[in-house]
């Protein structure tokens, strides 16, 4: 009888999976939120990179791209709105699951937990936090224009000279270095995240899942190299003032 009553210990709240909102708060659902917002943020980053690389094509084209983006208000604000929803959801859900997971093991192993796991996977919170710090600095640098060197005056058209901002900023090794560091950690974050999102959405294949793990590494570090090439090119004088 004692055993039977033990077995009857029910789930705390009755219809735990009653609606999508409660699903999103559950352990599996919160990871679906991470995966879906992660895909959105990754797509944004990829588009952002394509724009950035126009810096190699010279001042005219880069500033033309920047101005075109700035004058396309529906696109700009559509993108910003998506980011304003996606980023907080990604970050808050991460913070919630980390708290949940810490609570799930109140007493740590006295010696160590040596069970194999990839370093990038184990340090998602750390890499994510550094990327967030980098993002805030990046916004302050280019979007809010409160840090970093700024050209003395806007262009005659009234737009900011984004090309000069980029070159003046990255000519300072400290700023360029922080950008490269941000990208390396973003790459580590993506190398696990890009694989993980498939798993969370239930997409698994005997043949392509191992391939996917390698692809996540290539895409993650590929994005890193492409992004980091810009500050490095400025430092090396390939992108000229």
């Amino acid at each position: 009888m004692a055993e039977a009553s033990e077995l009857r210990r029910e789930a705390a709240s009755e219809p735990l999976f009653g609606s999508l909102a409660t699903f999103a708060m559950s352990s599996v659902g919160s990871k679906v939120v991470m995966a879906v917002t992660g895909i959105g943020l990754w797509l944004f980053i990829t588009a952002h990179l394509a724009g950035n690389l126009t810096a190699f094509l010279g001042r005219e084209i880069f500033n033309g791209y920047a101005a075109a983006l700035h004058h396309n208000q529906p696109l700009l604000w559509g993108m910003r709105l998506a980011l304003l929803i996606g980023f907080p959801l990604h970050i808050l859900t991460a913070a919630r699951t980390v708290a949940l997971n810490r609570a799930a093991r109140p007493v740590e192993y006295a010696w160590a937990n040596k069970s194999p796991a990839r370093a990038a996977a184990k340090t998602m919170m750390l890499s994510g936090a550094v990327v967030l710090a980098f993002l805030l600095y990046h916004l302050a640098h280019f979007t809010w224009r409160v840090t970093g060197p700024m050209p003395a005056a806007p262009l005659p058209s009234g737009d900011w000279d984004a090309y000069s901002m980029l070159v003046m900023g990255f000519q300072r090794p400290l700023i360029a270095g922080f950008y490269v560091l941000g990208q390396v950690l973003l790459a580590a974050h993506l190398s696990h995240g890009l694989y993980s999102m498939f798993q969370h959405l239930g997409l698994w294949g005997r043949r392509w899942t191992p391939w996917l793990q390698s692809a996540a590494l290539v895409v993650g570090y590929g994005l890193c190299i492409a992004f980091a090439s810009i500050p490095l090119a400025v430092l090396l004088g390939i992108i000229k003032p």
Binding site: S27, V28, S30, K31, T97, L100, N101, A103, A104, R105, S115, P116, A117, R118, A121, K122, M124, H192, Y195, S196, Q199, H200
Partner: peptide, 9 residues
Amino acid sequence: FGTCSNYSS
């Protein structure tokens, strides 16, 4: 229990 982070441990 905690959530799955795909460590594969």
